[in-house]
Amino acid sequence: MDLAYLDYLATSGKSFLHRFPAGLKIILALTLIGFIILIKQALFMVIILAFLYSLILLSRLPFIKIFLISLYPLIFALIFAYASLGRGWEWFFIILLRVLGTATTMILLFSSTPYPCIFASLGKVFPEFLITVFFMTYRSIFILFSIFENIRMGFKLRGGFQLKHPKRSLSNFAKAFGYLILKGMDDSQRFYEGLKLRGFQGKIEHNRRYCTWNRR
């Protein structure tokens, strides 16, 4: 899953971008997204993309992998771009470049900033209770994903998804997700009991020092 890979990149990297304070990085990323949305010329957008790509290379992040991940939202953008073809090819490419630019900015931010730092910085804008939900969700993703890997193995052993047998495949698929949900519900209860035992007051504390220049 991309999320696990980006998380690995964010926590294992040691470049200047990784050491840059998270709050400032978020502000810069949002400013850049603002520019991408407001800029009207394709050439300027290409320049911004070139800047983002050079940041990826300078931060020693895997360029091709990040580029491939950033292509994903283009699937949806292509529908918009295709419907706008009446306006000409320039418009078509501007739509794609805008989507590619904003996606690359977000992926670069996420692959160079550990998630506790992002959520800790968001805590200055969003209510603390919401940040707690973000933390728990993020943690749950990795817990559930490891469970899902086992379920996926079982699903494959039962034939996986076969177009020849759609009914059986969909039934197996639904059971796999049903099982994942039940495991998730049980784990969330266990998680809550653990938190209560440790004195959970609806808020998870985080170390802001970890997210500054001298974290390493």
Binding site: V133, I141, Q189
Partner: peptide, 19 residues
């Protein structure tokens, strides 16, 4: 906010992200 609802919401959000 102090109930088991928050971990449950987080778990369902995680299930949705994975799916």
């Amino acid at each position: 906010r102090f109930s088991s609802k928050i971990p449950l919401v987080a778990m369902f959000a995680a299930v949705m992200v994975i799916s």
